[in-house]
Nucleic acid binder design. Structure first.
Length: 634
RNA sequence: CGGGGUGUAGCGCAGUUUGGUAGCGCGUUUGACUGGGGGUCAAAAGGUCGCAGGUUCAAAUCCUGUCACCCCGACCA
């Protein structure tokens, strides 16, 4: 592996010695290219990486990295390594295999469920293959770190990870075995954590910039891993699995789960106010628990439905259980074309929630699938939250009373002409005010969508884009140190739980997303920094002594300049060699043929240029390749 | 976990309805011609038709079971 002569960040200064580039011969390595992709490949990166001989599938979601693929993976790893080291983190290696009892300490043995690769060894010990390593590192740390003087620390590894995805797909983008960099920071104070986090944010920005990727950093929910803040690094790409929302004016960007919605104007007449659109009418809707089913059956639009989602409150302490005995519920109401955002419901309700079990909810009077706000209003131990877009009585656009369809609170029935005031009381909010254990409020509880007002710039609208998540940084807080008893002595001579952060990069996914981002009809177009080789020397007549001599000489010169060179010395027809060259996507191609040699020249062409290329004197070729790769960021 | 689908040569596929000697294209090997964008001709190698039972004189084909894989949805540190 090499570094080039012109690495743009401070990390390159770690190299004191001149490192020569690699030279390889196509005929003596393994690059099995194919005209047709395997039938199971769908994503462009999957098709191309297989066709170009980078990877092969071994079983669902598991791939071999052939020589070219492994080189790319190592290039990305090396960039990650350099930037992590420059940010003050230390590399180590944890095992992929660990005892499940570690996960029991934090409850994640259950939380992960089937996603965890688990098995018993011959002694009957329950083991797992690590999907991530919070428990392992915390276990290590609690053994070896006992004083604040040993902190702060940031430790990372580049390790194969395992997740038993139910449906692996898209080649390297969602595999069951994948290469990941994971880092863990340990601090005594919140300020320390914030500093560590900001350093990682910067390191990640450097890493993905150096990899030549076009990416967006978005605010994200911390998710099941817990914690208080997080950002995702998303490669901008139409084929991406994830939707992100961005504000074109302020630069605010967030994923769908996290994205806030700017102030939505309340109806001019006030929330819930409006005459009924007609008499309440019950409709038999057999086998229609879902919004789409009902809409198709009743021929109404989702915008005219009220969706009612029932959550159960999870009490987190015995004290809570004592103060609030029995089952408590949170009922979220949104418009049928919107999605309830559990995080936002949680924030407003200030409770830990789970989606109610249908059976259990039914016993308490919620006919799941057919619930309406009527089932919840005035009900004890229940909080109702209605999204502003659902809390309207007048259809402002049409100037008519709002036509609502919602559940009939009995199986296989819905009602139409639902009206907030008539069916819930003259003023739904105050109707609950005099009961001390029933609550009713209007709050923003749905996922943001394209077209929603920006939360950061007045008048701007959110836009939706697609992306591939390649990096994710979290502020974990004390979740793991607390669960696993990782405490150290502070300056005050007292024990303190350590504050953690964790920082992941999907290395193999980064490789695939680089391809998703840059390819054309002919094949891959690698960013120079992560291409398996910088230069491909295509020898038209490998049987010709003069041609091969020039090829070797050029390769040596380039290697001296730190370039990695692949010589296509195969005795193939020119057409095949050019097709293969475009397919594997090496950034610079130098062609050695009779035309040029007669003039002591070779042909120089960038993969990213569609033109024919140009002739360059042999003496200048190596330098030109070096300049071109440096200009492309390698 | 719901719905749909596929397993036949290294890759892509036909053949299965109506049981009767295992096929095509690409790739591979050999030879000749060719030689700047996947060439031409000639010859050749390569398959227990996913696996296990069953029906039958006879099974890639029909029946039963099983395994693997893919797509859509749900889910997703």
């Amino acid at each position: 592996m090499t570094t080039s002569t012109a690495t743009p960040t401070a990390a390159s200064s770690t190299y004191r010695t001149r490192i020569h580039g690699d030279i390889a011969r196509w005929s003596r390595t393994l690059i099995p290219t194919a005209k047709e992709p395997p039938a199971d490949a769908e994503a462009p990166s999957h098709k191309l990486l297989v066709r170009a001989g980078y990877i092969r599938r071994v079983t669902a979601g598991v791939y071999e990295y052939l020589p070219l693929g492994w080189r790319v993976l190592r290039k990305v790893s090396q960039i990650v390594r350099e930037e992590m080291n420059a940010a003050g983190a230390s590399e180590m290696l944890m095992p992929a295999l660990a005892p499940t009892e570690l996960l029991r300490e934090t409850g994640r043995a259950e939380d992960y469920g089937d996603l965890l690769f688990r098995f018993e060894d011959r002694h009957g010990r329950d083991s797992y293959l690590g999907p991530t390593h919070e428990e392992v590192i915390t276990d290590l740390m609690r053994q070896v770190v006992s004083s604040y003087k040993q902190l702060p620390l940031n430790l990372y590894q580049i390790q194969t990870k395992y997740r038993d995805e139910f449906r692996p797909r898209a080649g390297l983008l969602r595999g069951r075995e994948f290469l990941m960099k994971d880092a863990y920071s340990f601090d005594m104070t919140l300020e320390g954590l914030n500093e560590a986090y900001d350093k990682m944010y910067q390191a990640y920005t450097n890493i993905f910039t150096r990899c030549g990727l076009d990416f967006t950093v978005v605010e994200a929910e911390a998710g099941p891993i817990g914690g208080s803040a997080s950002h995702e690094f998303m490669v901008n790409c139409e084929t991406g699995e994830d939707t992100i929302l961005v504000c074109p004016e302020s630069g605010y960007a967030a994923n769908v789960e996290k994205c806030e919605i700017g102030e939505r104007p309340a109806p001019a007449v006030g929330f819930f106010v409006g005459e009924p659109s007609g008499a309440l009418e019950e409709v038999h809707t057999p086998n229609c628990p879902g919004i789409d089913d009902v809409c198709a059956f009743m021929k109404v639009k989702p915008q005219n439905m009220l969706k009612t989602v029932v959550f159960k409150v999870v009490k987190q302490s015995e004290e809570e259980e004592k103060n609030f005995p029995g089952d408590w519920w949170v009922v979220a109401v949104v418009r049928g074309d919107h999605d309830v955002n559990e995080g936002k419901v949680r924030e407003i309700s200030e409770c830990k929630l789970v989606l109610a079990d249908p059976e259990e909810a039914r016993k308490s009077g919620f006919e799941i699938g057919f619930v309406s706000p009527r089932a919840a209003v005035g009900k004890p131990q229940t909080l109702i939250i209605v999204d502003p877009d659902a809390a309207v009585g007048m259809d402002a656009a049409k100037g008519k009373p709002m036509f609502w369809v919602t559940g009939a609170d009995k199986k296989d029935h819905h009602v139409k002409h639902f009206n907030w005031q008539r069916d819930l009381g003259k003023d739904p909010v105050s109707s609950c005010a005099d009961k001390k254990d029933c609550f009713f409020e209007v709050g923003s509880i749905r996922n943001a969508m394209a077209g929603d007002p920006s939360p950061r710039a007045k008048g701007a609208m959110l836009e939706a884009r697609r992306g591939i998540e390649v990096g994710h940084i979290f502020k974990l807080g004390k979740k793991y140190s607390s669960a696993m008893g990782f405490k150290v002595s502070g300056e005050d001579q007292k024990l303190h739980e350590v504050i953690m952060g964790c920082y992941g990069i999907g290395v193999s996914r980064t490789v695939a997303s680089a391809v998703e981002m840059a390819f054309d009809d002919d094949g891959i177009v690698w960013p120079a920094a992560i291409a398996p080789y910088h230069v491909l020397i295509t020898v038209m007549k490998p049987g010709d002594a003069k041609s091969m001599e020039v090829a070797e000489q050029l390769a040596n010169e380039m290697s001296e300049l730190g370039l990695d060179v692949l010589i296509d010395d195969r005795d193939e027809r020119p057409g095949s060699k050019f097709k293969d060259a475009d397919l594997i996507g090496i950034p610079v191609r130098v062609t050695i043929g009779e035309k040029g040699l007669a003039e002591s020249a070779v042909e120089f062409k960038l993969r990213s240029d569609s033109g024919k290329g140009s002739f360059v004197a042999i003496a200048e070729a190596a330098g030109k390749c070096s300049d071109a790769t440096a200009a492309a960021g390698a």
